[in-house]
Nucleic acid binder design. Structure first.
Lengths: 264, 264
DNA sequence: GAGTGGTCTAGACCACTAT
DNA sequence: TAGTGGTCTAGACCACTCC
């Protein structure tokens, strides 16, 4: 197990070597999903490296999405199958049935929890929000800021804004579990919608790390979403931060034919 | 500058504190894009912390996409505007004009380079590739494995497969700079295409790290893309790894109306 | 009390490159 | 030769939870 014994064939670093060994074991099924990996201290003894090096190996595996780590509990194999599909595009129905995600979670045996980090409220739009919603700066907008979790395992942070003239009455109306866009269709007759999403991937900021309960090495997918109604109005702008290791983002689209040679 | 002086108001760690200071300076414009940040050793002196802590701070900034780091050169502010837009969906034209990305790069003054990591070749499809291309296992497929770079700064790794009966002749045909899908349209009359992409975000594997020349803390966006022609055939399946800090992925789609109350 | 991961220290050597 | 980031060591203390 001593790394120096294998040093002959090794060009990579010690941490990378441990990564490759553990990864092979995981992919070969020798370490099934949800089983516990050796702790940092155990690994450092087994491979005769310092704890920081064993730690780096586990952090790399975490970053690649192969394991999940928890203080106290330990490090666990988290197969790719654990990722949640977030499907958009042709046939997308997440927006139509805003509760669909929650339903899917329930089917999988999770208990979905939504925590409002702020009380939903009407606020004056700053320049940025106003521009996104195509409203004058200072317009009243309905704001929601919430965290979605399953069994105390947070997966998504959502900050969303809506024009107050369409959604403001929500503050005094109880719509229960009715998805927001169903309510919009019923109340205001807005049906077809068009959505645009801009995604980036990055590591979490300290604040997001705390809220999403992830380690400094865990990537997130941050995206803006703008939703237009069929009358051309922007009806939602949202900034969403999702724990990357839990998600597969799926998009489908058509590319229309073009007249051949119509462009250079 | 000594962190312990500010310890009173500080709940976060020392690395996080340095991150917040530097981030504020960057966002306020005190540290303009492309300017050099203090080195790890300088920071560790300025803040009276160990080099590893200063290092962690810079790595966190790198992970968040605010700075880029290079051995020898140092750490540099890399504004968000440096990210390249990758636009898909309605109006998407990346596939139609496969050279568009390259053109955009040229306009920005970059010199695009494509390195074929393997000679393009006809290979027998293994079970996975065959399934993706909807062909029998063992079918001949045309494979390309290439790395895209600008000025020795790699940004994307592409492993792509095509049915040999449609694309095999490319091995002996010189199509020059003609985008692949333009050639397909001209040669085989396949026009409208449908695409599906599945994205995940994660940290790079050691191999990807080496090929893309990024540090262990830099996230990547890995995605599969399947492209169908208008006759229902799969004409491309690709696995793409993109340096996350260089990309914004943009998707646009419509959500069709539904009959109200047609679902629960 | 024992064990987990999270953070931090004060050193060290390396490969690489610009001067 | 000097300076950069990359890697590694052998310790340390912390917060937290389970027993």
């Amino acid at each position: 197990m001593d790394i120096d014994d294998a040093e002959g064939q090794m060009e990579t670093g010690k941490a990378d070597y441990i990564v490759e060994e553990l990864k092979a074991q995981i992919l070969e099924g020798k370490r099934p999903e949800r089983t516990k990996l050796p702790s940092e201290r155990e690994l450092s003894e087994q491979y005769n490296v310092s704890r920081m090096t064993a730690r780096r190996a586990l952090q790399i595996l975490e970053g690649e999405g192969l394991v999940t780590r928890h203080p106290v509990r330990g490090t666990f194999v988290s197969g790719i199958r654990e990722r949640k599909h977030e499907h958009h595009g042709i046939g997308a129905d997440e927006l139509r049935t805003a509760g669909s995600f929650v339903k899917a979670m329930k089917q999988e045996g999770y208990k979905p929890v939504v925590v409002f980090l702020e009380q939903p409220s009407l606020v004056a739009a700053n320049a940025e929000i106003a521009e996104h919603l195509q409203l004058p700066t200072g317009s009243l907008v309905y704001k929601r800021y919430r965290l979605q979790s399953t069994d105390k395992l947070p997966y998504r942070l959502i900050e969303s804004y809506y024009p107050a003239d369409l959604f403001g009455e929500l503050l005094t109306t109880e719509i229960g579990d009715t998805p927001l866009f169903d309510w919009l269709q019923e109340r205001h007759g807005l049906t077809d919608v068009h959505a645009k999403e801009d995604l980036i991937a990055r590591l979490a900021t300290p604040d997001e790390r705390t809220r999403l309960q992830i380690s400094p090495n865990a990537p997130v997918v941050a995206f803006e979403r703008t939703v237009w109604a069929n009358n051309g109005r922007v009806i939602e702008w949202a900034y969403i931060t999702a724990v990357a290791s839990l998600y597969i983002f799926s998009y489908e689209y058509n590319i229309p034919a073009r007249t051949y040679k119509s462009r250079t």
